[in-house]
Nucleic acid binder design. Structure first.
Lengths: 117, 117
DNA sequence: CGATTGCATTCCTCTAGAGGAATATATACG
DNA sequence: CGTATATATTCCTCTAGAGGAATGCAATCG
């Protein structure tokens, strides 16, 4: 069981505070650690540690400027995750197809909703 | 900090064995627990427990048939996750835009790759 | 009916990893 | 220089939750 990119990315995103950091980074083009500390309410060491995990999954990248580190979102990791979920798109396509079918053919749509999800 | 649908879904997916179950369910339209036990190599109680977490996040649904439970993917949870990552699509669009720009204007693309990610 | 099968649940244990405090390191500033 | 600031890292603690064994509970089979 080797750890793939997808594993790295989805493991990293599977933590609420890290998702919060990603959302904060989405607003500002670029953020320093201290800004993320203020905005997130977490303590500085936690922010740095979470950022390390995110960077390792290529979900964020860093630019060093003096004693500042400017973090920003990294499209590579984000796209890996997006693609993984996209591979399931047939599931919700099937969902709408079935719904269309029901609406157009079933005179009593209250029944037979088994597994229409 | 209330737990949203997105939190429920991404927390659930943030576990390798649960992702494995989702992938197994993607192949077969529908699977019993015992089939998932065989296919995953996990023990029955773990499979049942993971399925419970997935069902709670609306990532799978169940159909009961006698003493069998037929699980299948649920488009609702999958789409919640997909949508969350889609909201970041501007990040990788920006990435390709910048790449296009470099390719078309920069005579020496080996430099200045800072943050092109 | 008893035995078996399919699955859920309970209880226990154990570990990964999140959080906290202190410290290290590097840069800037006076 | 010494001091302050920005961030990373180390070490420790503690808890959520993953895994295992046993059990509960229906439904089916003979």
């Amino acid at each position: 069981m080797d750890v793939t990119d997808t594993d790295l990315v989805l493991d990293a995103v599977g933590e609420p505070n890290r998702r919060h950091l990603l959302e904060l980074l989405h607003d500002q083009r670029e953020s320093t650690v201290s800004h993320l500390v203020d905005a997130s309410g977490m303590r500085q060491p936690q922010v740095s540690k979470h950022l390390k995990v995110l960077a390792n999954a290529e979900l964020v990248s860093v630019r060093t400027d003096g004693r500042f580190r400017h973090y920003r979102l990294d499209g590579r990791g984000l796209q890996v995750a997006h693609d993984w979920f996209s591979s399931f798109d047939d599931v919700w396509h099937a969902r709408f197809d079935t719904l269309d079918e029901l609406v157009s053919t079933d005179p009593n749509p209250d029944q037979a909703e088994e597994h229409l999800r």
